[in-house]
Simulated scan of single mutants.
Amino acid sequence: MPADKQPYPSVWARPQRPRREQPPLSRQQIVAAALELLDAEGIDALSMRKLGTRLNAGATSMYTHVANKDELLELVVDEVYGEVEVPAADDPAGWRAAITRCAHSLRAAVLRHPWIVSVLGETGVAYLGPNVMRQNEAILAAFEQGGFTLEAADRALNTVVAYVIGVSTSEAAWLTTLARSGRSEQEWVESLWPAAEQAAQDYPRLRKLYAAQRNQNLSATRDDDFDSGLECILDGLAARFAPAGG
């Protein structure tokens, strides 16, 4: 079915074409090569032509599996989600521990593949990918284990994922800037500090915060901030949706 005749332009909405013989390239090979290229060179480096050259394959082999670059990105995004640790069914540690581990794993996946933040809103119906579906089903089950109704679990899922992606997007942008500069995180901040202090002169609260952060380990601070924010999110969800003592 041509891409422009599909009910929705997505690799997940397109029926798979019947194959009379084994294609020279598998979908997994194409996705793995695309992920490697994206991690090495970033989103701007990805093109079907460049990927074909990397795989030493012609366009026919590529388009057997994906109609265009957008479909390829859907597949690669779902591959990244496959790295996320999902909550185990009936985790004896409880729903909060399960969701916390999953949130940390999702953040880590985004930071390993920082290019992903630039395409999350442009990958069609990425939520139909099997790894995203598996993750979401497990998260819903974990919230239900904590006494949430299914509708409340859905709201909680959306809230936690929004928090993790929001924080990770800012972190990924920051770390990408660092990588391009060739400096360490501490070196970059030290070089910016005089300008930051000058900008905060007329803002006493910011000036006080900046002074307190002057010699902190920034990587550890980011981790602590993420933990603290996640705890606030989970506290709020528990207070709103979980039964007493849940």
Rank of each mutant, 00 (worst) to 15 (best):
A34G: 13
H104W: 15
V125E: 15
M62R: 05
A32T: 13
D227W: 03
E122M: 14
Y163A: 03
Q22G: 04
L192V: 06
M48Q: 14
G182C: 04
L209K: 09
P18V: 02
A196H: 08
R134T: 06
V132S: 10
A238W: 03
Y127H: 15
M1C: 08
I139H: 00
A220L: 13
E71L: 14
L192I: 04
E197W: 01
A103L: 09
S184E: 09
G121N: 07
Q216W: 08
E83L: 12
A97W: 13
L140P: 05
A172N: 04
P87E: 04
P204H: 00
Y63D: 10
Q186Y: 03
A173M: 10
A242P: 01
V167W: 08
A67Q: 14
D70I: 11
E71V: 14
V189H: 13
E197M: 07
L150I: 09
V77F: 08
V164W: 08
G182Y: 04
K50S: 02
F148N: 00
A138P: 03
D39S: 03
D235M: 00
V76S: 10
T176V: 01
T64G: 11
H104E: 12
K208D: 14
A195R: 10
T60M: 07
T100I: 08
L25I: 14
Q201S: 06
G147Q: 06
W115I: 05
L55V: 00
V117Q: 05
A199I: 03
A34E: 12
L128M: 15
W174M: 12
R180L: 04
D154Y: 08
H65R: 12
P243H: 01
L55Q: 02
M48H: 09
V119G: 10
F148S: 01
Y127W: 15
E137N: 11
P243T: 01
A142R: 04
G94T: 05
L237P: 00
K208E: 15
W174R: 14
P194F: 09
L237E: 02
A242H: 01
L106H: 12
I30R: 05
W193F: 10
L140A: 07
W12S: 07
D202E: 06
G246E: 03
T100R: 15
